[in-house]
Write a protein that binds this DNA or RNA. Structure first.
Length: 227
DNA sequence: GCGACAG
DNA sequence: ATCTTGTCGC
């Protein structure tokens, strides 16, 4: 029997230990999609928190990859034990997302996270960490940049501009809608940059953010509101 | 030492 | 991320 991805490491860690884990786990990343990758279901992941409350409500919404219609959602509420620290977001959000993942029946072929993939100071954003632990192809699609610089970006939908950081191309700014700020796309695990950009555009036919993210965001907010 | 800083 | 009213634009 192989080890379970979820048990690669514990979550009771200090920020310093978290950084060491990122540097070690980074070596296991595969920045290439599996040969013949077929995506029939794509999921969005997100969490919702409340000021003055330790509980985090997280979940996934699985969409049919063609119609972009939801086919399943799964959520969980878990106490957030790690603070928000730029660069260590996955240690705050993944515990609740893993709990939600275990409740999901129709596991997706691809997950799009709300945050960075390798466009990260140590090339190990939440999409990398999540994809690795779940053993699923993943993409990071963030609303703002954590690291790196982007050059001029065309106005039309579909235009892209590289994200450069320390001499490397770590992602792409992608205009998903004309006249609106771009989103920042980078590969997570079992993924490359061209495929990541292709999928983000495919699941963002109308609005700035992917339908996966929009559905996940609404779902976890409803979870929190409901208690 | 001084800024920057996903969600 | 969350807290919050109105306001500008298609």
């Amino acid at each position: 029997m192989g080890e379970r991805a979820e048990s690669l490491h514990g979550w009771e860690v200090t920020p310093q230990e978290a950084v060491a884990l990122q540097n070690a786990l980074r070596e296991r990343l595969v920045l290439q999609p599996p040969a013949g990758l077929r995506v029939s279901h794509v999921a969005g992941a997100d969490i919702s928190t409340e000021t003055g409350n330790v509980l985090g409500y997280g979940g996934f919404v699985v969409l049919d990859a063609v119609s972009l219609r939801p086919v399943e959602h799964a959520g969980a509420a878990v106490a957030l034990s790690f603070p928000y620290v730029p660069g260590l977001l996955s240690f705050r959000e993944l515990p609740v997302l893993l709990a939600a993942w275990n409740r999901m029946v129709q596991k997706p072929d691809l997950v799009i996270f709300d945050g960075q993939g390798i466009a990260h100071p140590r090339r190990f954003g939440i999409a990398c960490h999540g994809g690795l632990l779940l053993g699923v192809p993943s993409i990071g699609c963030a609303k703002s940049l954590l690291v790196g610089k982007v050059g001029p970006l065309g106005e039309a939908r579909g235009e892209t501009a590289e994200i450069h950081h320390r001499g490397e191309v770590v992602g792409m700014a992608v205009r998903t809608r004309r006249g609106v700020s771009p989103v920042y796309v980078s590969p997570g695990h079992l993924m490359d940059l061209p495929t990541a950009v292709e999928w983000v555009l495919r699941v963002s036919p109308r609005y700035r953010e992917p339908e996966t993210t929009r559905h996940a965001h609404r779902f976890v907010n409803a979870l929190r509101t409901a208690g």
